[in-house]
Amino acid sequence: MIELTGPILAVSAALAIYFLLRPGRGWLERWRRRLRLSDRVLSEDALKHLYHCEYEQRVATVQSLSGALGTPVEKVAGLVQRIEAGELATSEGASLRLTPKGREYALRIIRAHRLWERYLSEETGLKEPDWHKRAEQQEHRLTSSEADALAARMGNPPFDPHGDPIPTQRGQLPPRRGQPLTSLEVGERARIAHLEDEPEAVYAQLVAEGLHPLMVVQLTHLSAERICFWAEGEEHVLAPIVAANVAVVPLPREQPVEESLESLAVLEPGEEATVVGLSPNCRGLERRRLMDLGLLPGTVVTAEMRSPVGDPTAFRIRGALIALRGQQAANIRISSRRQVA
């Protein structure tokens, strides 16, 4: 028998050392790079926080920073020192402020973040909960020129899917729109301008409620414990602290109130209805396709037949017979549902 234990051990040891120390791509090198990267990620996230505070006219402090980053105050102090040393921010007493250089840096990160969210929402099949998470990572990886190329390819979109403006190549942003949902009066109607995507847990709750920018809401109840409102035919109940993360633009009162809108999904074969609009929830390729087919406000749609297994349903839309899945039909709001004469 030939004894191979010795040589095998020697070869494995040599290989292990090679992979660990390989110049440029060794594990040791990668680990150190990741450490450095996480330092950069932390300071970029800090700059973003400072920028958001500035935009919303709040005061940023070491404490608020520690809360936003989920990092202990002691560690944040070191971080702030590094940022100040890089001339990206200055402190006046307890409050922290961005320098022009820091603001430019922050806007570049925000631009990358919002562009990536826009990209994910319009051109991929990924669903809402994934956008923010992925963009949080991608914002640190995209270089400015990559971000510009992405923007150009998508037609320099002015807004991200949450309704936030995307900073331009030169770092311009329009002034902030909207007021918190909680500032409305009972009975008042407003259009959602923006959903704050941080903190994540609150955002997830808003998404789960099915809220989207451009949705029209009407307040029905407001108290210290809860806030109730109608949106697209459904009543939503939120805790005020959650609702404060929804920014709205009030609508003039005189417009007629459309209460309890139904969706196309409720239409039974033999019934027709008038389309009121597509829910903002329906976006990207899907939205464009539905509009191309003529599903627009004012279109009269007749349900003709249902698949033998219950879904999809075929609708007569502007003369053509088009099958839509229940899920799609639920995104199309209708009114004046009636039997076909």
Binding site: D292, G294, R318, G319, A320
Partner: peptide
């Protein structure tokens, strides 16, 4: 001609 509206778009 049977789907005039959509085609006119």
């Amino acid at each position: 001609a049977t789907r005039l509206e959509r085609n006119l778009n």
